[in-house]
Simulated scan of single mutants.
Amino acid sequence: MEPYRRTRKIILDGDFLRLNKCTTDHERRSQVSLQLIAGGPVAIADTPETIGNLDRFYTNTELLALNADGFVGKPLSDEIDSEGSCIWWGTMSNGDVVLAMFNREDSPKKMSVSLSDMALEGEFKARDLWEHADEGTVSGNIEAMVPRHGCKVLKLTK
């Protein structure tokens, strides 16, 4: 299963983001992450009166680098109710792999993905793009406890 890259001049885009309508910071992270993982831009619809201190979600340079790279991810599965539809991945132009796990449930959820599901093998350095933190080396399976309506976004580097 090969990920694809944005080509020509078509730019995928989702809905405009109004993060002031989200209930939690986890929901805000998920909304921004999904836009960028799917290959779209971050289109801000909050106004100066409603944005408050939410600019930190719109200005995450590590995630915005995906859009600048032309990154386009895809879900592991196109079956709506499957676990794979909540796990997205793709390859950046430099070969780094970006993995995102989205929890659509109303409670925290332990999520996992096998590197082999993404046609990857070996060891990778993992970096959490929201926490701006290196998480060590991963191989085989990647597991994370993902908060309700939250996400976990990792960049995997050989």
Rank of each mutant, 00 (worst) to 15 (best):
A43H: 10
L63Y: 01
M118W: 00
A100V: 03
G14T: 13
S85P: 05
S30P: 06
D128R: 04
R6V: 15
R56E: 01
L36G: 07
G122T: 04
N94S: 07
T91C: 15
K155M: 14
L12N: 06
W130A: 12
L76R: 01
D81E: 09
H149P: 10
P41N: 07
E62R: 09
Y4E: 05
K74D: 02
V138F: 01
K21A: 14
W89M: 11
V97Y: 00
L19H: 01
P48W: 00
C86M: 10
T59M: 08
T23F: 02
R104C: 15
S77C: 06
C151Q: 05
H132G: 07
Y58C: 00
L36I: 13
D78R: 05
I37M: 10
C151M: 07
T50W: 02
K109V: 14
W89F: 08
C86Y: 13
D78W: 03
T50P: 04
G136E: 01
S33V: 14
E123D: 08
V113E: 00
G122A: 13
D15Y: 08
E79W: 02
L63Q: 00
G90N: 03
V98P: 08
L129G: 07
K109I: 13
N67G: 05
T157F: 04
A119M: 04
H132E: 08
S139P: 06
C22K: 04
R28Q: 09
K155C: 15
E135R: 02
S114W: 12
T137V: 09
L17F: 09
T47C: 00
E105H: 12
D106L: 13
T24F: 05
F16Y: 11
D13E: 14
H132T: 11
A38H: 03
S112P: 12
G52H: 00
R29D: 03
D134Q: 00
D96E: 14
S114Y: 13
P3T: 08
Q31L: 13
L76K: 02
C151T: 04
T47I: 02
Y4V: 12
F71R: 03
D128F: 04
G70W: 01
F71T: 05
A68L: 04
W88F: 11
